[in-house]
Design a protein around this nucleic acid. Structure first.
Lengths: 216, 216
DNA sequence: CGTCGTACTATACACTGTACGTTAGCGACC
DNA sequence: GGTCGCTAACGTACAGTGTATAGTACGACG
C-alpha cells in the first residue's frame, strides 16, 4: 500500500480542506470521508486531529469567524453595532454553511470570542449596564442568525427550479377566501424576503428600539 | 410472513407516529426506519404516503403548526403581535424539533398558512402598507426563529454535563487581557441567555421600533 | 543502530435513505 | 360467489454515513 508519508496533515490543513469541501459540495454533502478523500488519506486519519465530526465543525466555524473584519472605530455606537451586524450577515452569505454551524453548536473558539468581544465592548462603552449589554448582544446575534439563515434558505430554494415550482403551486392552492391576506401579500413576501433592504429594516427596528431606551 | 393487513396506515397515522418518534428520540435520532419500526411496518411502506423524508418533514411541521392558538382579538395590535410571537416561541419550546423544521425547509402547508394569515392580517389592519406589512412579518418570524432556536440550543447544551464542562473550560481559557468584556460579561451571558425575559427584551425592542414608526 | 511513540491504515459494525421488483389483500365487477 | 386488477406493503440491495478497534510502518531520539 502506498502509505502517505507522515506529518503531511495538520489541523490547519484538515480544516482548510474541510471548508473547501463544504463550499463545494454544500453543508449537506459534507462528510468526513469526503474530506479524507480530498486529502488522499483514509477516513480515520482525521481522528488524529479532531475527536469527532462536531469537533471539526467547531474548528471550521472558528476558521470562518476569523474572516470577520474588525469593528470600525470613530463612529457613533449605533453605527458600529449596525456595521458589525451587517458584516456578520455578509460573511454568512459568502459562506452559507456558517449559518448552520452557528445555529447548531454552542459558541466556542478564539476567533468567535474575538467577534463577541467587539460587539460587547461597543455595547458596554455605549453606557449599557452589564445585564442589558448581555441581553442586547444575545438579541442582536440571534436576530442576525435568524434573518440570515432565512435569507439563505430562500435563495437556495429559489435557485432550485423544481422546488420553486412546487412552492408556487402550494401558494396558488391556498383559498383566497380562507387566507385573504396571505394571498394578497404573497407577491410582496416573495419580492421583499431576503436582500439587504429586508435585513436593514429589521436591524433598524431593533436599533430604534434600543436608542429610544438609552438615556440620551 | 405475518403481513400486516392493508390500509392500516394513513398519512395521518404516519405523521403522528413520526412526531412521536421525533419527540422521543430527538430530531437527530429520527429516521424513517425508526418510524416504520414503531408502526410495525417495513421502511418502504412510508413511501406510499410521502415522496421522501423531506416531504414527511413538511407534514410534521404542518401538524405542529396546527397547535398554534388563534390570535387573541380585542387587544391593541402591538399586543396581538406580541401574543402571536410568544405563542410561537412556546410551541417551539414544547416541540424543539419544530425549530429545525421551520429553519431548514421553506414554508408550506395549510396550517402554516393559517398562522401566517393571523399575523399578516393584524399587521395589515394596523395600517401598515403591503410592503411594510410583508417586511415586518418576515422580521418578526425570523426573529422568533433565531431567538428560540438559540434558546433551545442553550438549554439542550446545559442539560448535557459533559458539553457544559467543556464549554466552561473553553470560557475560562480566554485571556481576560485579550477579551476583557467577554470575560466580564460571561456570567451575565450565561445567566440571561434563554428564558422568556430575554425573548421579551428583544421583542420589545422590535415592537418599540415598530410603534415609533407607525403614524399614531 | 535500535527502539519507541504516534501518524496513518485496514477492517468492521451498525446505521442511514431510497431505488427496484415482487407479492398478496382488498374492493369491485361479472 | 368467483375472479380480476389495483396498489399497499414487502424484501432485497446499494451506496453512503460516523466511528470503534486493532494493526503497521515511519520519523525522531537515545
Amino acid at each position: 500500500m502506498a502509505r502517505t508519508p507522515r506529518n503531511t496533515l495538520s489541523s490547519e490543513l484538515v480544516v482548510r480542506t474541510a471548508l473547501q469541501v463544504m463550499e463545494t459540495k454544500g453543508a449537506d454533502g459534507f462528510s468526513l470521508r469526503g474530506v479524507a478523500a480530498e486529502l488522499g488519506v483514509g477516513p480515520m486519519a482525521l481522528y488524529t486531529y479532531f475527536r469527532n465530526k462536531d469537533d471539526l465543525y467547531d474548528a471550521i466555524r472558528d476558521h470562518l469567524m476569523a474572516l470577520m473584519p474588525p469593528p470600525p472605530a470613530d463612529l457613533p455606537w449605533p453605527e458600529q453595532v449596525r456595521a458589525i451586524c451587517r458584516d456578520l450577515r455578509v460573511l454568512m452569505l459568502e459562506h452559507p454553511c456558517l449559518a448552520q454551524l452557528l445555529a447548531s453548536r454552542p459558541l466556542s473558539g478564539h476567533e468567535t470570542a474575538r467577534v463577541a468581544e467587539g460587539l460587547l465592548s461597543v455595547l458596554r462603552s455605549s453606557g449599557l449596564d452589564p445585564e442589558t449589554a448581555a441581553r442586547t448582544h444575545t438579541t442582536l446575534f440571534t436576530f442576525v442568525l435568524g434573518a440570515t439563515t432565512w435569507e439563505i434558505q430562500m435563495t437556495v430554494e429559489q435557485s432550485d427550479p423544481d422546488a420553486l415550482r412546487r412552492l408556487r403551486a402550494s401558494m396558488e392552492s391556498l383559498s383566497s377566501r380562507e387566507f385573504p391576506t396571505v394571498v394578497e401579500l404573497a407577491p410582496e413576501l416573495a419580492r421583499t424576503s431576503g436582500g439587504q433592504q429586508q435585513f436593514d429594516y429589521g436591524l433598524d427596528l431593533l436599533l430604534a428600539g434600543l436608542t429610544a431606551r438609552t438615556p440620551s
